[in-house]
Design a protein around this nucleic acid. Structure first.
Lengths: 213, 213
DNA sequence: AGGATTCTGTATCGCTCGCTAAAGAAGGTG
DNA sequence: CACCTTCTTTAGCGAGCGATACAGAATCCT
């Protein structure tokens, strides 16, 4: 039951990966069709036949990114046994992913369209919605932590969620600006040292400068 | 001693302000000459005569931004009496500035060129250098805090500086994504609650959900 | 006044953008 | 084999980009 007509001469998945890398590094507007087709090893008509237009290709590239590199985030927030472990895993796994060799630094969902122009408004909203999903999942995980007795009922869920979201998105800027993984891990140490009910507070944590587990 | 020739028919400072607003919202690449000249109320030849080329105009716009809106940052880090007050003023003043009406949200130095393309590489480096200046000034202020006895000599200056830089840059993403000033202020409350030697730690701060001073 | 100088508006320039028409190439199906 | 379908290639479309040539207008200096 093979498809009729001339078979496709390139690997669609592989081409999509290359497109993702270009979008990741250049952003949506900054990635030109010329650079995309060159990286994918195909000509424009093949791209349009296989992926639609530039925006459709971008959306597929983002989904590919989320399943290949951003996977940690939602997995941590849904599968880790405790809220604290979830936040820690989310931050540490992403920090590691941000500086892996072989791809641009930082989070594609944050960096691929920071400016909203009339031309890319729908792309911006697409990424903004994804970022809001993370914020919502983070709050939800904290709420579950309260429900399960891990966190005191008096803890301000929204405030704590906003703090770790801020750190989360700040790490992407740090990574893109070339900050080392060690530095990011120490930032995460500090950010987690103020987890509610952690006891000692920040000072002791800073003084002993612990390393990541 | 007036200049010879036909006098300029527009206010250079005012035109620069309008250009700054366009770059702030659209980013360097996303701001077209058409939109810039329309906002400035002038035609392309006037722009090129007064500002050079697009990149020179952008650099001037960034300098204008830094003296008009980013002024708080370096002022706080150099003029506040204590390191803690400096960090707090830097974060709070910027959070307020990020959501002021009348201009785009978030920090222009962070948002105007997040992606580095061959065409805008020098612009990217210009902004990245400015961000590194903030990191350096932040570390320097903390180091001074140790020198003056405000912070214990055992405190890890680099780690603490990296943490507040991460929060600082994360706040810009939060602001651009529409997070409220209240939420950002609460994030700053939490981030400051783990200042070394703060005593109680985070839990009590979260429980009482204090408001900003 | 007359000339020198500088700014302004019109009308482009060459280039790159995202995208596509048209023809040839490679497979299946009779 | 002829025929149909689908992909690939070449070539180029209209639009928008950053930047400018040119002529006219406004000011100063002599």
């Amino acid at each position: 039951m093979s498809p009729r007509g001339r078979p496709r001469a390139f690997d669609r998945e592989q081409a999509l990966t290359q497109a993702m890398l270009v979008f990741w590094e250049r952003g949506y507007d900054g990635a030109s069709l010329a650079e995309l087709t060159a990286a994918m090893g195909i000509k424009p008509p093949s791209l349009y036949a296989a992926f639609g237009d530039k925006e459709s290709l971008f959306r597929e590239a983002v989904e590919h990114y989320q399943s290949a590199h951003g996977r940690h985030t939602m997995r941590a927030l849904t599968e880790e046994p405790t809220a604290r472990a979830a936040v820690e895993a989310m931050l540490r796994n992403n920090a590691c992913a941000y500086v892996e060799p072989g791809h641009p630094k930082g989070c594609m969902v944050v960096l691929a369209a920071t400016n909203c122009t009339p031309a890319n408004a729908s792309v911006w909203e697409f990424l903004a919605a994804s970022r809001d999903n993370v914020r919502r999942a983070l709050r939800e995980r904290l709420r579950r932590g309260v429900e399960e007795g891990e966190l005191a009922a008096t803890v301000d869920i929204d405030a704590l969620g906003a703090l770790y979201a801020t750190v989360f998105y700040g790490l992407t800027m740090q990574a893109r600006d070339g900050v080392s993984l060690d530095s990011m891990m120490t930032v995460i140490d500090l950010a987690l040292s103020m987890w509610p009910g952690n006891g000692g507070g920040a000072a002791s944590t800073v003084d002993t400068a612990p390393s990541a587990p």
